[in-house]
Design a protein around this nucleic acid. Structure first.
Lengths: 228, 228
DNA sequence: ACAAATTTAGACACTCTTGTCTAAATCGTC
DNA sequence: GACGATTTAGACAAGAGTGTCTAAATTTGT
């Protein structure tokens, strides 16, 4: 027994470190090569570990793959919910605040390493592991989209937006702020920071043209001109 | 020597049929299994052809793969341009006409067999064949997006829409009408017809809320001119 | 420094896949 | 029916990858 501190981190130190570096390396290689194309020796080399150690930790290639996906899903979800918590409930400058939110969502959840990898794995292996990715669907979009919708509903209730269906509005918001990044996403790349900002800015402006509160004809015209 | 007619179509008839069925089957299997996971015997079985015939026709696995991608790109592009030709230049009912266009684009180009396969192959193998997919990027989005943008510019010029940047508007149009289909696309599935219609309807309505002509005619002209 | 646990390198059997080769069967045309 | 071209089934060698095993080396806790 460990009468020291943090009982579950202390004893296996290099042990757990190796486990992590294996999962990490496996994510990289599975994404780059696909499940069938990935080979264990490559993962071992990438992790700086012998092949046998991988088998000791994870049993076989398929178990390792499942671990990788669950790991990524968990971390991505945590990131998304953390970002949703920064959604502007009482915006000072609605446009700027929504742009900020969109950029954070993209940079911290969709374009970062985990987001990119998870997206790629879902796209490439989704059909082969229906249960695993059904789980992702429920835990991912199934939970995050309604959460974002709820935030938009709150903005509408607070008089900042005119929205009929918050769920539709949330999906369209995401579609708009990512509209210019589709090709990059397709090829598995990461957009530059300024591309993310540009796409978010254009998307939010259009979103507000559609759903923003119309004060009067003149002030509406002002904001349209100001944003151009 | 063939002194008959059409010297290069006549002699191989079942020959060319086999070539096509091989490319077809290969597309199916490459999409389902990925390049590394696809095996030639499976493709041969799917095509109803012996393995040797595949090698006779296409040389090796990689050449076959390249043929498949070029083939799909070509057919998809043709479909997209054919659909763009049906873009409503002088709409009677703008909303209904744009919804119709969006549905046609989805059903005939994005959700059909070729579109689904090409998307999947780009997502899964795009990083492995940079030149091949750079070519796709130029021939695909690089040509179709501006073509759609030009149509929107024409609608704006005709007084049907208020648009500052037609390229941005075109990308946002696509983002909006596909906003509700993202998850399905991710997993490689095909949305049902009613889902396509629903997404298109919601998307076009939001698009028109943002860019549709407002009642006051004078202010529109101003902003359109100011941003041009 | 000691003892237990973990990691390592390498060899190994096994399976799967690619691409070639050959001789027989089939097809399309005259 | 006969001829040339194409397709077929099957065997084959060569290579690559998975997962197991072992004995030696290393790390870790006491």
């Amino acid at each position: 027994m460990k009468l020291h501190v943090s009982p579950d981190i202390f004893p296996p130190r290099g042990h757990e470190a190796k486990r992590l570096s294996i999962v990490d390396a496996a994510a990289t290689v599975f994404c780059r090569e696909g499940f069938a194309g990935a080979n264990i020796d490559l993962i071992a080399a990438e992790a700086g570990v012998s092949r046998q150690t991988i088998y000791n930790h994870h049993g076989d290639k398929e178990k390792l793959f499942v671990t990788v996906v669950r790991d990524l899903t968990e971390r991505c979800n945590a990131g998304i919910f953390a970002t949703i918590a920064t959604f502007p409930d009482r915006p000072g400058d609605l446009e700027a605040d929504l742009i900020g939110f969109a950029v954070r969502l993209n940079q911290n959840c969709i374009c970062n390493r985990d987001g990119k990898f998870l997206r790629k794995l879902i796209q490439t292996e989704g059909e082969r592991y229906p249960e695993l990715f059904a789980e992702w669907r429920e835990q991912g979009p199934g939970r995050t989209w309604p959460a974002i919708a709820a935030r938009f509903a709150r903005l509408a209730y607070g008089g900042y937006l005119t929205i009929e269906d918050p769920d539709v509005a949330a999906r369209q918001f995401l579609g708009l702020v990512n509209a210019e990044l589709q090709t990059t996403f397709m090829l598995g790349g990461s957009p530059r920071e300024d591309e993310v900002l540009q796409s978010a800015t254009n998307g939010v402006r259009t979103f507000l043209r559609a759903f923003g509160k119309r004060r009067s004809a003149s002030s509406e015209k002002q904001s349209a001109l100001a944003s151009a």
